[in-house]
Design a protein around this nucleic acid. Structure first.
Length: 742
DNA sequence: GGGCCGTCGCTTTTT
DNA sequence: GCGACGGCCC
């Protein structure tokens, strides 16, 4: 068993061999926390004689769960039956299925993803006659989600003002819709599990006793619901082993609160605290640069992260002209590194703040014939055709699923339009019928308020669905899916709704891919298949792909991974930090941590790039280097960077000439600063040529008056009201407007 | 009911 | 620059 502890440093060893009782491991990036967790579990089983079935380990992604299981099994040399490893969501999903009789939903409940959620919120909004324009589904959903993460049910929901009241009503209706559909959203998985364990003493005790050991990875990214779960489950044996790093907390937007680490120390005052400070991943240069970045965050516990891996090459900064140039540069370097340093494509990763940024990078990869693997973005399961087919499968599985029903009732077209659907819904609601009950009633010839032709179409649909349900009962997924495809004429539909032949073929390919996926385990129960589809994360797909390719991913997805070479792109004000974070509580600090996470993924080489101008929403606007770059000491960097140098100089000047030394928290509000950096990036933009009220002449539209003019990239966008031609929006450099003197 | 066209608003980040 | 949605016409 000595091999279990071999190669561990004293702190790691201390954590792995800690006796019973609560343990808090504070682990810097690259300090081997995954290793500690896997060895700890192996140690519990192999040395402390723990029963594997009594161990529950929580990871952040399914992929991490799979890897952890593999590693533990190879450490112990055998399969570990009963050991439970998974994400909070997966574990709760299982629990709710198993204990379904004690919950408000059946065991075959569905899991709604973000798209389904939005559809349900939109439906709730419409039903309540709320103005969709004024109350954006997205916003309301965020509010609902936030409430759920805080364990607030619709009945308990309170928020000030009219908006609060609207939110409360939508939340209430939304939840009814889900219950009627026998569905849960992601947040419900956690919420319902907590509520169940809180209210049902017997079940709570059963699980508290059952899980003798509880281990949680990425503890800094737990939200209230998740924390409560840890608290409840760990309260009996108190063998709670959590690992985290407050500097890597990057999921505040979904309710995670790194202060749960503090809360843990409060709730488990006897917790043993172990610090892992030695980094085994990165070079000293990378670490120093990363530390300079994270050090600007207020309210953090400073850590003495160190490495024995010497200096290494400097961090390269590149100032690109545009996002196209940035992508070219990155791909160029990648090709070069592979040729000169013998690195493989898979050794290199490109990271960015938003998924939209991947586009330019992908195009550059294609141009240079560099194989790449995109994590996230428009994933397989979010493609239209895949979602359609999954909706069919879901409806077969659960004919009361309102969201899936609305999605496919008229896809492919079967003459059931908005009007008929509305009538159907109203009729069903008035008679308190679920979707399947209403359909069955129509089929039985029950009189309805629906037009005869419409009713017939619904009945036809119900007959198809009934046939599929019979087919599904035989348990052959492939046969079911194939029948759905033929019965609905889906191929034809694909061709008719595609703009080009090319597109139709691609979508056809996707359908084939889904069939292949199902083929793998065609005997699998439909419920299992649907659940696994609902819970896969984007990073999860990274696992198996053996193909050698460059990885493109968001900084969020990069958590927990490492690469010899890392490129972080788009280091601009407004992008990283993202302007949406400016007015969020703790927003700026979280952006900073996000960059820190990205930088510390790099083992040997780190590149940081930003663009002088970037296309957003179709027009190009100038950018400023990210404020986070400023504190990185010059001796760690290489690469020309005129803008950054300027900014640093200005910063120094400001520091030298201001009394108090508070460079990052200037009195000016972040929002104002954002606006200023947009309009006056170089210390005052040139004045606008066309001012409101000025009379102008245009070659085609004739005479008009300028209503408004604003800067658009280097150009000016002028809105003119023409005497003859109405109001037009023109680009100054093309419009050749002549200013008419009065 | 469906297809076409113009308008609008938009994107953080993910289980 | 794109996709969702509403208005309009067949």
């Amino acid at each position: 068993m000595t091999s279990l502890l071999d190669g561990l440093n004293p702190q790691q060893r201390e954590a792995v061999t800690a006796g019973t009782g609560p343990v808090l491991v504070l682990a810097g990036p690259g300090s081997g926390k995954t290793r500690v967790l896997t060895h700890r579990i192996a140690y519990l089983v192999g040395e402390m004689g723990a029963y594997p079935g009594g161990i529950l380990a929580v990871t952040f992604t399914n992929k991490a769960a799979g890897e952890m299981r593999e590693r533990i099994e190879s450490l112990l040399g055998g399969r570990l039956g009963g050991l439970q490893i998974g994400t909070f969501h997966a574990i709760c999903a299982r629990l709710l299925r198993k204990e379904a009789p004690f919950t408000r939903l059946r065991a075959d409940y569905l899991i709604y993803d973000t798209d389904d959620q939005l559809a349900a919120v939109t439906q709730a909004i419409t039903e309540l006659n709320v103005d969709v324009k004024k109350y954006r589904p997205r916003q309301l959903l965020n509010a609902i989600s936030a409430a759920k993460n805080e364990l607030i049910t619709p009945a308990e929901y309170q928020a000030p003002g009219y908006v609060g009241e609207i939110t409360r009503r939508v939340y209430e209706r939304y939840q009814e819709l889900l219950v009627n559909s026998n569905a849960r959203d992601f947040d419900d998985l956690l919420l319902d599990a907590v509520l169940l364990l809180q209210t049902n003493d017997e079940l709570r005790q059963k699980y508290q006793r059952h899980f003798e050991h509880l281990l949680v990875d990425e503890f800094q990214d737990t939200n209230t619901a998740q924390y409560r779960l840890v608290q409840i489950l760990g309260n009996y044996h108190r063998n709670v082993f959590v690992v985290g790093d407050e500097d890597q907390a990057i999921y505040g937007f979904r309710g995670a609160d790194y202060r749960n680490v503090l809360q843990f120390r409060h709730d488990f005052p006897d917790a043993r605290v172990i610090l892992l400070e030695q980094n085994y991943r990165s070079t000293q240069i990378v670490l120093d640069a990363a530390r300079a970045v994270i050090d600007q965050n207020p309210n953090r516990t400073p850590k003495a992260l160190f490495t024995e891996r010497g200096g290494g090459p400097r961090v390269t900064i590149y100032e690109a002209y545009s996002e196209v140039d940035e992508a070219e540069y990155v791909i160029e370097r990648i090709v070069e590194l592979r040729r000169q340093d013998g690195l493989s494509w898979g050794d290199m990763a490109i990271m960015y703040r938003t998924n939209a940024q991947s586009r330019a990078l992908e195009e550059a990869c294609i141009r240079r014939k560099v194989p790449y693997r995109l994590v996230g973005g428009v994933g397989f399961y979010t493609r239209r055709e895949i979602r359609d087919l999954l909706a069919y499968l879901r409806l077969v599985h659960n004919p009361d699923d309102a969201v899936s029903f609305s999605r496919i009732i008229n896809v492919p077209k079967r003459g059931i339009g908005k009007k008929s659907l509305e009538d159907f819904r109203r009729w069903a609601a008035a008679n308190r019928l679920t979707i399947s009950q209403a359909l069955a009633a129509l089929a039985d010839g029950v009189a309805s308020s629906l037009a005869g032709a419409a009713a017939r179409k619904f009945v036809e649909f119900w007959q198809m669905l009934t046939n599929w349900r019979a087919l599904a009962a035989q348990g052959d997924l492939i046969a079911l899916l194939e029948d759905i495809l033929t019965q609905t004429g889906y191929s034809l539909h694909l061709h008719e709704t595609s703009d080009t032949e090319q597109e139709a073929l691609e979508r056809q390919e996707n359908v084939k891919e889904l069939l292949a996926l199902v083929e793998n385990d065609r005997q699998r129960p439909l419920a299992d298949f649907l659940e696994s589809v609902a819970l896969v994360a984007d990073v999860d797909s990274l696992a198996g792909s053996a193909e050698d390719a460059v990885t493109l991913l968001t900084l969020h997805s990069a958590k927990g991974l490492e690469f010899p070479v890392v490129f972080i792109t788009g280091l601009e004000e407004g992008l990283l930090p993202h302007f949406r974070a400016f007015d969020e509580q703790d927003g700026m600090a979280e952006e900073c941590r996000l960059l820190y996470v990205g930088m510390t993924r790099a083992m040997q080489r780190l590149y940081l790039t930003y663009a002088f101008r970037r296309m957003t929403y179709g027009d190009s606007s100038p950018g400023m280097p990210s404020r986070f770059l400023r504190p990185i000491p010059a001796q760690l960097l290489e690469g020309a960077s005129a803008l950054l140098a300027n900014q640093r100089a200005a910063h120094r000047y400001q520091q030298d000439t201001t009394w108090d030394d508070a460079p990052l928290t200037q009195p000016e509000s972040p929002v104002r600063r954002a606006i200023r950096s947009q309009i006056a990036p170089f210390g005052g933009a040139p004045a606008l040529r066309y001012k409101a009220g000025v009379r102008v002449f245009h070659g085609k539209f004739g005479e008009g008056i300028v209503l408004e003019s604003r800067r658009s990239g280097e150009d000016e966008e002028v809105t003119v009201s023409f005497r003859e031609g109405g109001i037009k929006r023109l680009t100054a450099s093309f419009a050749n407007l002549v200013i008419l003197e009065d």
